[in-house]
Simulated scan of single mutants.
Amino acid sequence: MAVKWFAIDLALLFRRARRIEDGKVYDAYVVYPRECVCENALSVFLSFTLPAVLEDQCGYKLFIHGRDDLPGEDQAEQVERCMRLSRRLLVVMTAVGSCGGQGVAPPLEEFDWQMGVHSALVQETISVIVVQVEDGHTHT
């Protein structure tokens, strides 16, 4: 019963103990629709919830555009470099209704989305995790 109660803590302990050096700096590259970032739910999720859970509690290292990038750096080069240094792509999708439309929208217009999909589907160098944020609720 104790193992079941502390299963997540044990998994994180073993993860830290057997960390593989593969040259990757980030555990996940976060892609989100930037035109919807002014939304309160998405802004809170990207700024507070996601880093608090994945970085502070679980020990993951995330690259979040707008937080970790350097001003004045060429965006295309930075996206390509940081994506090569990431183990997986974390795609945050939002409800289109809040951005003007219906349904759920991935960040299709973003260069990092296109680069990540190409890396995942064609080159098979990165895995993809999809998260949907909608009115303060998160679905994976």
Rank of each mutant, 00 (worst) to 15 (best):
Glu109Ala: 13
Gly101Thr: 08
Glu55Val: 07
Val104His: 04
Val128Glu: 02
Gly103Lys: 01
Pro33Trp: 06
Leu62Met: 09
Tyr29Val: 00
Val104Asn: 03
Asp56Thr: 12
Gly103Asp: 05
Phe63Pro: 00
Tyr29Ile: 00
Arg19Thr: 14
Glu124Met: 02
Trp113Met: 10
Glu73Leu: 09
Leu108Asp: 09
Glu77Asp: 15
Gly66Glu: 07
Gln78Cys: 15
Arg15Cys: 04
Gln132Arg: 07
Leu121Ile: 12
Pro33Cys: 07
Glu134His: 10
Asn40Tyr: 07
Ala7Asn: 13
Ala11Met: 13
Ala17Trp: 03
Arg88Gly: 06
Leu54Val: 05
Pro106His: 05
Met1Ile: 04
Arg34Lys: 08
Glu124Ser: 04
Glu21Lys: 10
Asp22Phe: 05
Asp56Ser: 12
Val122Gln: 06
Gln75Ser: 11
Ala120Ser: 15
Arg34Phe: 06
Cys99Trp: 06
His65Tyr: 15
Gln75His: 08
Asp9Val: 10
Arg88Ile: 02
Gln114Glu: 13
Ala2Ile: 14
Ala17Ser: 04
Arg87Thr: 05
Val53His: 15
Val31Gln: 08
Ala105Lys: 15
Gly136Ala: 01
Gly116Met: 06
Thr49Ser: 08
Asp68Glu: 12
Gln114Cys: 14
Leu46Thr: 01
Glu109Ser: 12
Met115Asp: 07
Leu13Met: 13
Val117Leu: 14
Val3Ala: 10
